[in-house]
Design a protein around this nucleic acid. Sequence first.
DNA 1: ATACCGATTGGCT
DNA 2: GCCAATCGGTATC
Length: 218
Amino acid sequence: MTPAESADRLPRLPRAFFSRSVLAVAPGLLGCELTHAGVTVRITETEAYAGPRDPGSHAYRGITPRTRPMFGPAGFTYCYFTYGNHWMLCLVAGDDGIAESVLVRAGEVVAGHDLVRARRGTARERDWGRGPGRLAQALALSREHTGRDFCRPSIGDPIELTVVAPRHPVDPDDVRTGPRVGVSGPGGDAVAYPWRFWLEGEPSVSVYRPGVVRKRRS
DNA sequence: ATACCGATTGGCT
DNA sequence: GCCAATCGGTATC
């Protein structure tokens, strides 16, 4: 079965799925299958970022050209570039005007192995989607994929990205939560923001790394 | 116009 | 475990 065929067996998750609170959407994406550019991954790790009141979010300082998709309706992508090398994939959640999004941090490659092998170079298979930068590279996502409607792609401007429900149900006992990875400042607070979600025992889940402590810019 | 920095990764010790 | 790479976005002057 080709990746496109497997993705087409199940309907896309509807916009209503993403229009809920990001704290429901982020864990709800675990086990779901994400397909883009010939590759399908099973999502194993996500993080929630919640609006201008969340100091760990890019939306904390208000709307900017880069973060604009986050302030729009659910069901759109927010892709951004960081550290001079890496693209990240976020899926916008919540209501229009509420800046919420889910960072897709890791996934297990379930289709399109040959494409991923070519895109990820010498990396071991376990590392193909282990971390948000690696995952975006496996899925061939970059600047042209931000701000795109993946629930109802517009005619003539297709984004070939689909998210479908888990092929096999996720056991709730396998879902773990903890502090977000690499978030500096108060947004990395393990008690106030335990907004990282992952599937226990999955080799593709990225390693935890605390954010660097630095004083908050005024 | 310029300085600072990051929701990371890969290579090396 | 440690650290350099690398550059666009954002803030600041």
